[in-house]
Simulated assay, not measured.
Amino acid sequence: MYPEPLKNLIEYLEKLPGIGEKTAERLALYIVSDLDINDAKDFANSIIAAKENIKPCPVSFVLTDEEVSPLINDKARDNSTIMILSDSKDVFQMEKMDTYKGQYHVLGGLIDFSRGITDKDLNIDSLIKRIENNNFKEMIIATNATVEGELTAEYLKSLFSKNDLNITRLAYGIPVGSDLKYADILTLIKAVENRRKF
């Protein structure tokens, strides 16, 4: 039905997370029909440039286009705190808040035995070295509140429990503006567990 180049474009767009068949078709048709050729070339070049120039920082594993992530060398950051996250998109989300000013360490995933992912597949050895070589006073475990996230958090807690570290976990619970009757059981459990003095 579609010309071969358009069909190929649709297929590649469908591989992107959150893009289904209809959205891929709509985006491909927009690119082909409405996008200026120079904009299309710039778009294609930006994808190539991103793939060629962005890589994990060798220290924190946060994606960067520099030798070492600027977050590592930023003198204004609090070097007594390190936040552990599963991937770089979580770091970028945290940075948008402009509240947390400590260091980061990206695990590169979560322990997931069903998919064959163990602690050996994650950036945990490098985390151990960072903890040994720095004076971190607090480790904030900021993995998702999923089975895999909880399993990874518990593993990290047990791994570093003998270190002189204050190990904390991000609070989870009822979102602001929501109604209790719409919350699932796990959310309610976390909300009760993470309650604080008012």
Rank of each mutant, 00 (worst) to 15 (best):
L16I: 03
S80L: 12
L27F: 12
E138M: 04
Q103W: 00
L27C: 01
I140Q: 09
E21V: 09
I117L: 11
R130W: 07
F113D: 08
K55M: 07
L9D: 05
V32M: 14
A76H: 06
I141W: 09
K41M: 07
S86Q: 15
E154W: 12
T118P: 11
E148D: 09
N79E: 09
E67P: 00
D121M: 11
E67K: 14
P56F: 11
R77T: 04
L63M: 15
K120Q: 15
T23M: 14
E154V: 10
S60V: 01
A40Q: 05
S114E: 15
I111W: 05
V32Y: 12
P58G: 06
N133K: 14
N123Q: 14
D34T: 05
V62Y: 01
G116A: 11
R77H: 04
G109T: 08
M97S: 13
C57N: 02
A76C: 11
I54L: 13
D98N: 14
I19R: 00
D65W: 05
T81G: 01
I48D: 09
F43T: 02
L151I: 02
I117Y: 07
Q93P: 00
A28T: 04
E14Q: 14
P17N: 13
F136T: 01
E138Q: 14
P70N: 05
T64I: 14
S60Q: 05
V68S: 06
H105F: 11
K96W: 00
L151N: 07
I72R: 06
G149A: 14
Y30A: 07
S88K: 03
N144D: 15
I124A: 05
T64H: 04
P70G: 04
K41F: 01
Y30N: 08
E150W: 01
M94E: 12
H105K: 11
D34Q: 13
I84M: 06
L9C: 10
D42F: 04
L35Q: 05
S80V: 02
T64W: 09
D78V: 01
F92G: 03
D119I: 04
G18N: 10
I10E: 11
D87S: 13
R77C: 09
I10T: 08
T143C: 14
S80Q: 08
A44N: 03
L9S: 07
D90F: 02
